[in-house]
Amino acid sequence: MNTLSKTNRRDFIKLGMAAGSGLVLGFSWREGAASSLEVLNESALPAGLVDFNSYLSISTDNVITIFSPNPELGQNIKTSFPMIVAEELDADWKKVKVVQAVLDTKKYERQLTGGSGAIPHSWERLRKAGATARHMLLEAAAKRWKTSAGSLTTKEGNVIHADGRKLSYGELATDAASVPVPTEVKLKDKKDFKIIGQPIHNVDNLEMVTGQPLFGLDFYREGMLFAMIQRPASCGMKIKSVDSAAAKAMQGIVDVVTFKNNVAVVGKSTWEVNKARKALKIEYEKEGNIESTTDHDRIFKESLDRTDATVRRKRWRCRCCV
């Protein structure tokens, strides 16, 4: 999985252009900034002139990339986002790839999975990004063929001339970057959808069925250490004392660190760390009330039995779904 480790603007643009020059369109995932798209290139770098946190790029070798903030957790967002872009772009959807953004709560408003919100939130901006790029590719082809864009059509990653000639998006991408970005683009009528609404296989299938690294737990680096945290058994318990002598003396252990109300064992392998964690001698003392399931049952029952209840929320949907 590709991730962006540093998110400064220069790196961000370079990432979009990794496969050559081509066309890189910046757009924003922020609310209220959905319609602004612009061509990104290194000369447009002076800080503050551009306001974007995502991009759609078309490389000269026909690879289309979208930079997505949404984490994949089995909801198939890595498959559905490319489908949306490919639809408006008339691309071969298999050539559309997602580059996953790292967690950055300052840059993205809604970088989460839950509430079925990703598609409603991103649907229009992804379609506009795709439609905008298509418009620019059509203009570039029209210029090359000295004809009008209106006489040309697009299909599966190619612009097609009325006489049957074809130019691939990759061949046109660099020219398209000098076409003025349209402020308004027409989106497809839903009846013309060819990709959206079709059953499409998950793009990560092969990686999942062959055991390739896709998960947080699969992140390994040369020389990295492992840590496990021992937490109190319940809320309301506070560390009184920590005796880590035995744990520290164990095979493979590098250090034992107490922070806040937790004790972390750091070492060279998962198993060594796990064994040493069990050798910690931690004394806890009670701090405030320790709530048990029995307490919760009692609190809920008392609340339900009250006759002076106040309605806190009348809407049927929770705030995250709005």
Binding site: G74, N76, H201, N202, D204, N205, L206, M208, V209, F215
Partner: peptide, 9 residues
């Protein structure tokens, strides 16, 4: 892969 078994995988 044919029946798209995995979700999170």
């Amino acid at each position: 892969m044919e029946v798209d078994v995995p979700q999170c995988g």
